[in-house]
Write a protein that binds this DNA or RNA. Structure first.
Lengths: 209, 209
DNA sequence: GATCGCCAATTGGTATACCAAAACAGTCCC
DNA sequence: GGGACTGTTTTGGTATACCAATTGGCGATC
């Protein structure tokens, strides 16, 4: 299935900055570039529109959506809102032990990359860590809300601004531990604190509310 | 633009039950039925898939999504999660007075319809009341998450199960008052309590977590 | 020299045709 | 009689062709 591939490649091209914000997305050009026809390409674009990565006015050329400062604030808000709920759900779910195990693995791997100054790799692990929690809720709506808010996009921009490796590792381990031991309240509160703590250290962090 | 029209008609057909949950959506048939070709129809379907109204597995026939009991639980969870945040944002926003004014209007109108046993009308007002709060945040991601969770769809099913008119009116008025006076904490807490209170009175309410 | 208008090329929207894979049914074999 | 197989039909995926609207540039005119 070509559409899937094109969709992923397009999204990746946008995430990676190969297609820059504001850039026009001409269907025939892109179809050529991704070695497909206009139909799958249009359908890929449509998905990206519904996810907010691409803006499209009927009858006009689409273009890559830009993240304004307001957008960044919004994304932090969504993260603050959704992740604590997810943490609570996972902590009271039956899968919590296996999830926690995976989280610890990812925490270690990320710390390793951080110490080796492999920013891209560590960012991937961080993303994966939090995505794991979201997806472990088994709640499609929660997952969708998380992804459509572009939390992953924001996080992938934080490369190299993540602060002390050991501190972050410690927080992730504690986070995983609270999920493992099945204390929903504690996990939820810690998740909230963790997200706020990270945001506050960011240049464009979430000071509001 | 045909796709827009087909999209609206399809969505309406699903909301109204003309296309029933679980029903197969054969592209050629629907294209014929809506007097268009498969391309616009496919693109409409794709939008509905991204909105969760239609389920689609690549290579297979799509069908109308059904709301399982789990789905209903999930929707209540999303409402509990998103609406309090929205209430907080609105309460600390500069538009809070005009929003509150509109909310009071809707509360009154709804109470009127409830007393006249006009369930459909009152349900509309209720939906509008809560949608107003969500949209007043001016946060596209929050609005999207709310809509894509199908909170409106769930609420439109509550017709006739809304309990005492006066009680509901009272709650809505208090809700609006807290937003108007600009106390974010109070508004957020009240919103959370209100949603839970409603859910608990529903047959398929949100007892979990 | 500036502006208006027109023509051509670019581009998005739609229809149709073709293909491959999945669903189905009938048949044959056990 | 039941189950597996095969050929046909249905159906989704893709490519291409056509159309309409928009855009951009060139030239004529004031």
């Amino acid at each position: 299935m070509k559409q899937q591939r094109v969709y992923r490649e397009l999204r990746e091209a946008i995430y990676s900055g190969q297609l820059k914000p504001g850039q026009k997305l001409v269907e025939r050009q892109l179809a050529l570039k991704f070695a497909t026809s206009r139909v799958p390409l249009r359908e890929s674009l449509l998905r990206l529109v519904s996810e907010g990565l691409v803006r499209h006015t009927p009858g006009q050329t689409s273009f890559v959506e830009d993240l304004t400062a307001d957008d960044v604030q919004e994304i932090w808000l969504m993260r603050r809102t959704l992740e604590p709920v997810a943490a609570r759900l996972v902590a009271q779910g039956s899968q919590r032990r296996s999830v926690a195990k995976r989280l610890l693995l990812l925490a270690d791997r990320m710390a390793k990359y951080l110490r080796a100054d492999q920013d891209a790799r560590s960012a991937e692990c961080d993303l994966e860590f939090h995505r794991t929690i979201i997806e472990a809720t088994k709640s499609p709506r929660l997952v969708r809300a998380y992804e459509l808010s572009h939390v992953p996009m924001l996080m992938s921009r934080l490369t190299g601004e993540r602060g002390e490796p050991d501190l972050l590792w410690q927080q992730h381990v504690e986070y995983a531990r609270l999920i493992e031991q099945g204390t929903p309240d504690a996990a939820e509160q810690y998740a909230r604190w963790h997200v706020i703590e990270i945001a506050d250290r960011m240049p464009s962090g979430g000071q509001n509310s």
